[in-house]
Write a protein that binds this DNA or RNA. Structure first.
Lengths: 230, 230
DNA sequence: GGGAGTCGTAAAAGGACCGTAAAAACTCGC
DNA sequence: GCGAGTTTTTACGGTCCTTTTACGACTCCC
């Protein structure tokens, strides 16, 4: 893992400053959001290794944030809360949180619990995170953000690239329209199913020898798309 | 998971009794040890889903138990401790513990944290193993959403696939018309019994060598259908 | 033997989904 | 504020899927 990234969803400026200093000081890449809605978008676009979320947010219940995240990602979620009562802990953990830290908390403990979360994902994602993906003539270098067909490099727009890497991350498995829309365009646009169709056409045009009879970017009618795995 | 099992390493009889009542009451299979050495042996022989260990043990430091376990197993370890200071938590978590609960602790919180640990292992093993169902020539890969008859892949429409997987989930058992309609078409269409007949015909046509005398998709007259289990 | 209910099959009607193209709106550097 | 490149929106034809309907075969019970 190069440098692990964290999305912090926290509205109180004081705590945010404190955690910013703590986390960046430890070498984490930090992305911040001050509302639940922003936080969910941020998680979708940054694909962090850990999420730290405060339960007391202005716009929506922290629990609701967890539930919405859990609909499409297994990223470890650590809850911060001013309340330390059993009921709150149990509710949050059962909603999908992986850990619960009561305020006032110490930096050391939070860091240690983040390390635990990272340990979990490090073990789990062995298959997924090769820095480069290959199938047939197609080659995706995730580290340098470059894509080749045979010897020829192909230029992709930001959305094209993101769509492709989303498929790469689930190579061989079907990715639903919903999932693609959520991970590429953000959770707000999950009803714009035609985005995917248009961009899949773009990608096929750039990557496939015969766009009409694709070898890599396969359609799963009524469900979504799949990137051929071999 | 049939009934999750827990190894409890705890020397104080009172806490042991308390946790025995709590855990067995929740349906967990519980194995107990009163010393670190016994505990390690117990984990080795029982292969539990979770280990709960008290840091203050008579024979060896609880930290040492964790380190020795970590040399050969990734089983989730939840630490109980009378001490709640940062240093202790950080040390235990970095030694390989997955969670840390300070005494006095509530039964509800410990149970919730055990559920979190079980969720992790459940997710991890889901991907790897039995995501695929097999009977005779028929093979259903639930992870990749693909179906084979012998070597040949079979393309299924969304409803065909959903109907098949509903049967797979109850393989060997009878699934009633009502149940199939509810799980595939939704609770609104439970009176459209002919849907099932039509689609069962489609499936048999695609999956069976002799659709008229099915080997896998069996009719239970007057009740529903059953997928042969072997 | 006849009738009611259930099951399997076939095929037609209607609708949903997919691929494609192209226009409109937007973004950014200059 | 101009222009190239990118994203969003719109429209349409074709294909595949779902739903609907119809009918013959079978079973169970009378």
């Amino acid at each position: 893992m190069p440098e692990p990234s964290v999305v912090l969803i926290e509205d109180e400026p004081q705590i945010r400053r404190f955690l910013r200093a703590t986390l960046t000081g430890q070498g984490y890449r930090l992305f911040e959001a001050t509302t639940g809605a922003d936080g969910i978008v941020e998680v979708g676009s940054r694909q962090p290794d850990v999420v730290v979320v405060d339960l007391g947010l202005p716009d929506m219940d922290g629990l609701e944030v967890i539930r919405q995240l859990r609909e499409w990602t297994d990223v470890p979620v650590i809850v911060l809360s001013a309340r330390g009562e059993e009921r709150d802990k149990v509710t949050a953990l059962d909603a999908g949180a992986d850990d619960y830290v009561s305020k006032p908390f110490s930096a050391g403990e939070l860091l240690a619990r983040i390390r635990v979360a990272l340990r979990h994902t490090a073990g789990a994602s062995h298959e997924a995170d090769a820095a480069t993906f290959e199938v047939g003539e197609l080659q995706v270098d995730l580290l340098h953000r470059r894509v080749f067909v045979g010897e020829q490099e192909v230029r992709l727009t930001p959305i094209e690239y993101k769509l492709l890497t989303t498929l790469v991350r689930h190579a061989g498995k079907v990715v639903t329209h919903q999932q693609l829309l959520r991970e590429v365009w953000g959770p707000v646009h999950t009803d714009q199913a035609h985005y995917v169709r248009v961009y899949m056409a773009h990608l096929r045009h750039k990557l496939e020898a015969e766009p009409a009879r694709p070898r890599y970017l396969l359609t799963e009618p009524g469900v979504g798309y799949r990137l051929a795995a071999d």
